[in-house]
């Protein structure tokens, strides 16, 4: 199930500070379906939180509400101390500060890799083309795909595309990064290269909220695991504690199904 990771290279940096994302009493319905039930969650600066749970438990919906790709029915969400604006310029500005990586990459198909990474910086951060390209190349270098800069997304492997998608989000210099099952659409041999980039980000102190089924990543890079089921947060714990001694029956049941015996 989960790809094996190399041995730990030391503890995570402890630079955890003030809350950057706060969700209070968040409720959401899709028609009759109650997908988020009274969600309360805080993510601190520099923290890496992994959201686990069976499919349909509301994990993806939860992180998509943080940059308002999904609206909520009630409750409050604040990012960096400000409540989520409902629309317009304010919302666009907030989204620029919250990076998002999707399961299906969603690179802009008609733009080159470099253009994918420079679109946001030129249009939203108002950098000049030259500045944006210089920064863009540095970021592509960081995720190891700088040599593909002139190609188009369809010419890259899934793993490369997802690393470009991470670079595109990083190019906005986000305060927090959201990952929505970033490795679920990848062929098994490409999972590791994406996880490596994510672990690298975590070690550099990026605040991350990650929906994933990669237990290895959770163990290695997460400060905290949040377990969801049927739209509720059932359990929160440090990864080690969660995996070895989950307190809820539902978490035990879930872990028994996914962990290798």
């Amino acid at each position: 199930m989960s790809a094996s990771l190399p041995e730990d290279t030391g503890p995570l940096p402890h630079r955890i500070g003030e809350p950057i994302v706060t969700m209070e009493h968040v409720q959401k319905h899709f028609g009759d379906l109650h997908v988020l039930r009274d969600i309360n969650l805080e993510v601190a600066k520099g923290e890496v939180v992994v959201v686990l749970g069976p499919s349909g438990s509301g994990k993806s919906t939860l992180i998509r509400t943080i940059n308002r790709l999904e609206t909520i029915d009630s409750g409050t969400i604040t990012v960096d101390g400000k409540e989520l604006p409902s629309e317009g310029k304010e919302l666009a500005r907030l989204r620029a500060e919250v990076g998002m990586v999707f399961q299906s990459f969603n690179l802009f198909s008609h733009k080159s890799i470099l253009e994918n990474v420079t679109l946001g910086p030129t249009k939203v951060r108002k950098l000049s083309k030259a500045e944006a390209e210089k920064e863009g190349m540095q970021i592509l270098e960081r995720v190891g795909v700088a040599n593909q800069a002139q190609k188009y997304p369809a010419q890259l492997s899934g793993g490369q595309q997802q690393r470009v998608a991470i670079a595109r989000a990083l190019a906005m210099k986000p305060k927090v990064m959201l990952f929505d099952e970033p490795t679920s659409a990848l062929d098994p041999e490409m999972v590791q290269e994406v996880l490596d980039v994510m672990v690298g980000l975590a070690r550099q102190g990026m605040t991350m909220l990650v929906v994933t089924h990669e237990m290895g990543f959770a163990r290695k890079a997460a400060n905290r695991v949040v377990f969801m089921d049927e739209g509720q947060i059932i359990e929160e714990a440090e990864p080690q504690a969660f995996f070895t001694s989950p307190t809820s029956d539902r978490a035990r049941d879930f872990l028994s199904k996914i962990l290798p015996r």
Partner: peptide
């Protein structure tokens, strides 16, 4: 997903349409 990804990097409605959706 193309429109979602454009909104996620902070493009406004006009930019989402003009830069990403309409060209495709």
């Amino acid at each position: 997903g193309q429109a979602e990804a454009s909104r996620a990097i902070g493009l406004n409605f006009g930019q989402v349409l003009g830069q990403v959706v309409l060209p495709q």
